[in-house]
Each structure stands twice: as structure tokens, then as C-alpha cells.
Design a protein around this nucleic acid. Structure first.
Length: 306
DNA sequence: AAAAGGTGCAACCGCGGATTT
DNA sequence: CAAATCCGCGGTTGCACCTTT
């Protein structure tokens, strides 16, 4: 014995909502409040599935929804939260009052994700796209030419440790909390980030790291964390630079960017295509400043098989 | 000016955990 | 406890609008 079916799907309307339907839904919820989506359509006189009503309300009709383009602060927050939460759009939306998970998801897929790709940053891992990059040669050209990278690398397979990158991003987020909170306050939507939660996520990432174990490696990892803690600063800084160069307009990509965008949202998982390589080659990813005192040895982990 | 192709976003789909009977 | 459904989530699609050719 279970509940009655949510709705009889036969004869229910689908597709775009009309203003009349919106009005019915708004009026009903204003009088009765949201919830009980199963019975809502019938009571409200709507030929819609309850699921469709809930979606329409939560994503579009809710009075507290903030419309319009995303601010730089919101964009920063999305990038930082995505770096530790991944595609947990509802969790990210919970940190961005007035924004819905659907809106953030769309904005990520249509704007931020493509921009990251253009900059040679993997939007899934938030790490530089090493598959598109001869890192050692670039670093050699950027850093002191006397540095013997070949000797340092020792012929070993050199890979960024992804777990540490994630952890670094997390710690960076924690570090940025004051700034982020400040921004929220400025926007009158203060909702401080939960540091405890973030720290637990950080530790989870840390424990998932495929780094070598042992005290020495822990020291090395801590150094990596210290260094890579700046990773998200660099990422966000670089994004802002790009926006400033183009004249910021999140909602209106430039023709240049449009011509480099991916063809379809169904191609999200595509990686390493010629198109992306071209995007990367045209990017200015490495125009940011290398911090003083940077010890390049801390960037890498040299393990037989990361 | 028209056709073709690209973009952005609202809405739908399907899944899995939670809840109810 | 099991079955049936609710609810919310992330992924995907459809289509109107825009841009390019």
C-alpha cells in the first residue's frame, strides 16, 4: 500500500507556461503557501503536473528570485563553491540567495564553463588543462632560465595532484570567507559560509588524494597546500582580468568568445578537442604574475602513478 | 534579405533518497 | 517491512532569438 499517484499524466499540459497559468499558480500559493504539489494543480485549477508547478514556482515565480546578470562576486562564489562541491547546484544555490539551482547551472554551462575552457582550465577539476600543455617548457620559459627543470623532474612522470588541488581550492575558499561575507553584506544578502562544513569537505578531498603517504610527504603536501592555496585567487583574478579586458558583460558574450564556444550543451563531457586546444592556445592563462618566493618544486608531486 | 548555424534558457526527464501507507 | 509515491536534484532537450554567411 502506497500513496496515490502524483498525477494522472494523461491530458496534462506541458511546455511553456502562459501568463494565465502563472497567475493561477501565484494566486494559489499566495493564499495557501507552497507545498503539497500533488494536489496543488487540481485545487489551483491548473492542467499541469505537480512537478511542473513546483519547478515553475521555484525557478521562476518565487518572489525572492533575483533576476538579471550575475555579479562578479556571485561569479567568484560560484567558481569557488563549484571547485569543492562540483555540480551540486542546489548546494551552490543555497549560498547565493535569490538564485536558483537551475539558473546557476545554466549560467555555469553557458558562460563560466566555456570561459574556463577558453583559459585552459578544466571546468570539472578546476585545474589547468595539463593534457593541452607542455608544462615544463612553459615553466622553464617563465621562471629563472638557470633552473634545471629536467634535473628536477628527473624523468619521472610529473602530474599535478588533483586531490591537493581540490584541497587547495577549499582552503582558499575558507581563507576568502571574510571577503565573501563582506561581499554578501554589501549586497544585503549576508549568509556566511559554513567553515566547519568546508573544512570537512577539505579533509575529504585530502583523504581522497592519491599522494604518497608518510611524514615527509605530509610535509611536502602541506607545502603544496600553502602554495596552491593561491590557486583560486589566481583563477578568479585571471577571470576578472579577462572580463576587464573585454568590458564586463556576463550575459552577453563577445563575438570572439561566441565563436569559440562549444557547439552544444550535450557536449559537456567532450575534452581535448582541437577546438579546445585552439581556445587554450589563444588564451592568456599564464599572463598572471608568478608569486614571489614560489618554489616550483612544491607544485608537483612525483609519484610513479598518480 | 534569406538561410544556416549558434546561443541561452525555460522546462522536461529520469533517478534516488525520503516518506507514507 | 515492503510497496508505492513524493520530492528534489542533476542532466538534457527544445525552441526562440541572435549572429554569421
Amino acid at each position: 500500500m502506497g500513496r496515490a499517484p502524483c498525477c494522472d499524466k494523461n491530458g496534462l499540459k506541458k511546455g511553456p507556461w502562459t501568463p494565465e497559468e502563472d497567475l493561477k499558480l501565484i494566486n494559489y500559493i499566495q493564499n495557501h503557501g507552497p507545498g503539497n504539489w500533488r494536489s496543488l494543480p487540481k485545487t489551483a485549477g491548473l492542467q499541469r503536473c505537480g512537478k511542473s508547478c513546483r519547478l515553475r514556482w521555484t525557478n521562476y515565480l518565487r518572489p525572492d528570485i533575483k533576476r538579471g546578470r550575475f555579479s562578479l562576486e556571485e561569479e567568484d562564489t560560484i567558481i569557488q563553491l563549484h571547485s569543492i562541491m562540483g555540480n551540486k547546484w542546489s548546494s551552490i544555490a543555497a549560498r547565493l540567495p535569490g538564485r536558483t539551482d537551475n539558473e546557476i547551472k545554466n549560467y555555469w554551462n553557458t558562460h563560466i564553463r566555456k570561459r574556463l575552457l577558453r583559459m585552459g582550465i578544466d571546468p570539472v577539476t578546476h585545474a589547468p588543462r595539463l593534457d593541452l600543455l607542455d608544462m615544463s617548457s612553459i615553466l622553464r620559459s617563465v621562471l629563472n632560465p638557470s633552473l634545471n627543470m629536467q634535473g628536477f623532474l628527473g624523468g619521472a612522470q610529473v602530474l599535478m595532484n588533483q586531490g591537493l588541488l581540490n584541497l587547495a581550492a577549499t582552503l582558499s575558499l575558507i581563507e576568502n570567507q571574510n571577503l565573501a561575507s563582506h561581499n554578501y553584506v554589501q549586497n544585503q544578502v549576508a549568509q556566511p559560509l559554513d567553515i566547519t562544513q568546508l573544512q570537512s569537505v577539505a579533509m575529504e578531498n585530502f583523504s581522497c588524494s592519491n599522494s604518497p603517504s608518510g611524514d615527509e610527504n605530509l610535509v611536502l603536501q602541506q607545502n603544496q597546500v600553502d602554495l596552491l592555496g593561491n590557486y583560486n585567487h589566481v583563477l578568479v583574478h585571471s577571470l576578472k582580468n579577462e572580463e576587464q579586458k573585454k568590458g564586463y558583460d556576463s550575459a552577453m558574450p563577445t563575438p570572439e568568445s561566441s565563436s569559440n564556444q562549444l557547439n552544444s550543451s550535450s557536449n559537456y563531457l567532450r575534452s581535448g578537442t582541437e577546438e579546445e586546444k585552439n581556445d587554450f592556445c589563444n588564451s592568456d592563462l599564464f599572463e598572471f604574475d608568478i608569486p614571489e618566493g614560489l618554489d616550483i618544486a612544491d607544485i608537483f608531486c612525483t609519484v610513479p602513478q598518480c
